[in-house]
Design a protein around this nucleic acid. Structure first.
Length: 189
DNA sequence: GGGACGATTGAA
DNA sequence: TCAATCGTCCCA
């Protein structure tokens, strides 16, 4: 299987283009002890700039979200409910503060669960996915069909923004089928 | 300085 | 249905 690491030009596009294209891409986490996890991204959500009332950037630039106001390809991490780190990929360009929330990977559903498994915390804030030696994304040429739905847990944003179908996810059966057909390991490492 | 709240999760 | 748990942000 040939794999190509995603570069800046992948991430500096609109979030509604980048988010669905991340389904089927492979997230790589390299640990200090030499071990690694390579896992297929199966669920994401798009947060689209200052107009999107569910997007943190709609509240204006703050110390917490300032990385969203930088270039695509950086990582935005924040703590939610005092317990869970949320992993986001910044997209587009500084004048367009957007991000993709990574909500699910193969064999690990849930944004808080996957950051625990991948040992991702505040120290990853601002990490560059195109340069980092501990986290990046690869294209293995896998193609997964995906479904859309409203985003999860954003009712506070009001009926319009809570309902836009900006959650993208591959059905469980689709993921299993691809994993089996290409003999992609559950967790390479 | 005080208080409300959250892009969640796991247990009752 | 509900508690856990704390950084962030707004108001005074």
């Amino acid at each position: 299987m040939n794999a190509v690491r995603l570069t800046e030009n992948f991430f500096t596009r609109d979030v509604l283009t980048v988010a669905p294209e991340l389904i089927g891409k492979v997230l790589v986490r390299q640990f200090p002890d030499g071990k690694a996890i390579k896992t297929i991204i199966t669920e994401v959500e798009a947060y689209k700039g200052i107009d999107d009332l569910a997007c943190h950037a709609s509240k204006g630039k703050t110390p917490r979200n300032e990385v969203m106001f930088m270039n695509g390809g950086l990582i935005y991490v924040y703590l939610i409910y005092g317990m869970y780190w949320m992993l986001n990929f910044v997209t587009a360009t500084p004048e367009n503060p957007q991000a993709v929330l990574i909500r699910g990977i193969h064999d690990c559903s849930g944004p808080g669960r996957l950051t625990r498994k991948l040992e991702i915390d505040k120290s990853f804030y601002g990490e560059n996915l195109c340069l980092s030696d501990r986290i990046w994304v690869e294209d293995f040429g896998l193609s997964l069909s995906y479904s859309k739905s409203a985003r999860i847990g954003v009712d506070y944003a009001g009926p319009f923004w809570a309902k836009v179908p900006w959650r993208f996810f591959a059905e469980e059966t689709v993921v299993e089928k691809i994993v089996n057909s290409v003999n992609f390991p559950t967790m390479l490492g």
